[in-house]
């Protein structure tokens, strides 16, 4: 069995998994790391899709710097999502 395709499936699965975790984790620091992981897996996929320039840029800018910037913003604000009771009708007012 050729193993490049199965590596592709594994990476796509990992990428989607970290995206879901990044959206769901209540700890924002962890969510930021999840976001960086999504970028990292995406950059591997870019490499597999024969786009080395994009892969490098995504790894340097998407994963490293935007992750760092989000973490700095967390440092200046707060680390956890606040839990509070939700009221109906939010989508009308946004």
């Amino acid at each position: 069995m050729n193993c490049i395709p199965c590596a592709e499936y594994i990476i796509v699965a990992l990428m989607i998994g970290s995206a879901i975790l990044a959206v769901e984790w209540r700890d924002l620091l962890a969510a930021a790391v999840g976001m960086a992981a999504v970028s990292l897996f995406a950059s591997i996929l870019f490499f597999l899709l024969q786009a080395p320039d994009v892969a490098m840029t995504e790894a340097a800018i998407g994963a490293a710097l935007s992750g760092a910037v989000v973490i700095f913003a967390i440092k200046r604000t707060q680390r956890f999502e606040t839990e509070e009771e939700e009221r109906p009708g939010w989508w009308i007012r946004w």
Partner: peptide, 18 residues
């Protein structure tokens, strides 16, 4: 949470690039 919304937006952007 605003930061969470921004993280989500950035995930959307990665998806579009892919």
């Amino acid at each position: 949470n605003l930061l969470k919304i921004l993280i989500s937006l950035s995930i959307v952007e990665t998806g579009v690039n892919l």
